[in-house]
């Protein structure tokens, strides 16, 4: 579990470098990636399916990105884009393609639907996270700034 989180944070930072995130934000990108993965594996280990675990993870990730964006005074895209990669259904895409080539159409359909469902779940989770009004996050950012002084 710990090893997974560390690897997730490391990989997220690597992607942050690929997307030219300012070096001061690497650590916070890693935290965001970690939040997504912890939520995802928490729900998976508590019996949730891949789809619902992805919804929760995307929701947690989006909220964390918005909080970080208010605190760090950075566009939330910086944290969102780098954090989302641990959830993107790369495995599903691979197996879909694999079963198509192998001519196993039943499992191709199954994996293909699953991949699309996960993608849809990420969309839903992010939308739920975006619904909260921006002013709440702005207040939070200001409060943090006051405490820091």
């Amino acid at each position: 579990m710990i090893a997974e989180i560390v690897m997730c944070m490391l990989a997220t930072v690597a992607f942050a470098v690929l997307f030219h995130v300012p070096a001061t934000e690497y650590f916070f990108c890693a935290v965001n990636g970690g939040v997504g993965w912890v939520t995802y594996s928490f729900w998976l280990s508590h019996g949730a399916g891949l789809t619902s675990a992805s919804i929760w993870a995307a929701l947690a990730l989006t909220l964390a990105a918005r909080i970080l964006s208010a605190v760090r005074k950075m566009p939330s895209t910086v944290f969102l884009i780098t954090g989302i990669f641990s959830l993107v259904p790369g495995a599903g895409l691979y197996y879909t393609s694999y079963f198509l080539i192998m001519g196993d159409l039943a499992r191709f359909m199954e994996k293909g639907t699953e991949t699309l469902k996960i993608a849809g779940a990420i969309v839903l989770g992010m939308i739920f996270g975006l619904v909260l009004p921006q002013s709440w996050f702005n207040h939070l950012g200001k409060a943090v700034e006051r405490i820091r002084r």
């Binding site: 997974e4 690897m7 990989a11 993965w37 990669f85 641990s86 495995a91």
Partner: peptide, 29 residues
């Protein structure tokens, strides 16, 4: 911008990390 070497290295680290998360062993990473 990050230099080409840094980009190449982080491409490797990113793939290794996500490969591990998707159920690979350290050997596969």
């Amino acid at each position: 911008r990050p230099s080409k070497w840094v980009l190449i290295l982080s491409g490797g680290i990113g793939c290794a990390g996500f490969g591990y998360l998707m159920g690979g062993r350290p050997y596969d990473s």
